[in-house]
């Protein structure tokens, strides 16, 4: 299968790769997917004043499209408020990366990861 240029670019230069301290009360961690399904995403947000996402880090086990989807998601939510971040839809990620239908689940997982991170952060408050 040929990858889109967008996927290749994110795969070669993934943004915001890393780890935040999951015990920090300002950090929300979303871990979604399953190894048996071939993709797991961990997306972490650090939330500052006014619910703004100051920092975001991810790590992903998965195919190129999964890595690109999570990389793009981190790029999009950085600097946004939690409310704005929640509004990101998997279809927008899929469109930006020109994902083929069989890879749509990668973008769904990225949306789930954002939501899981937000909900983890909120549960700490």
């Amino acid at each position: 299968m040929a990858y889109s240029e967008e996927v290749l670019e994110h795969y070669e230069n993934p943004r915001n790769v890393g780890t935040l301290d999951k015990n920090d009360k300002n950090v929300g961690t979303g871990l979604v997917g399953a190894p048996a399904c071939g993709d797991v995403m961990r997306l972490q947000i650090k939330v500052g004043d006014n619910d703004v996402i100051e920092d975001v880090q991810f790590k992903t086990f998965g195919c190129g499209s999964a890595i690109a989807s999570s990389s793009l998601a981190t790029e999009w939510i950085k600097g946004k408020t939690l409310e704005e971040a929640k509004k990101i839809r998997n279809t927008e990620i899929a469109k930006e990366l020109a994902l083929p239908p069989i890879k749509l689940h990668c973008s769904i997982l990225a949306e789930d990861a954002i939501k899981a991170a937000i909900s983890d952060y909120k549960s700490k408050k």
Binding site: T19, R42, K59, T60, F61
Partner: peptide
């Protein structure tokens, strides 16, 4: 592996 959350967990000694 630097990009893999599972590798991190393995390194932390978590049984997946």
């Amino acid at each position: 592996r630097d990009l893999s959350p599972l590798w991190d967990m393995y390194k932390e000694g978590i049984d997946l």
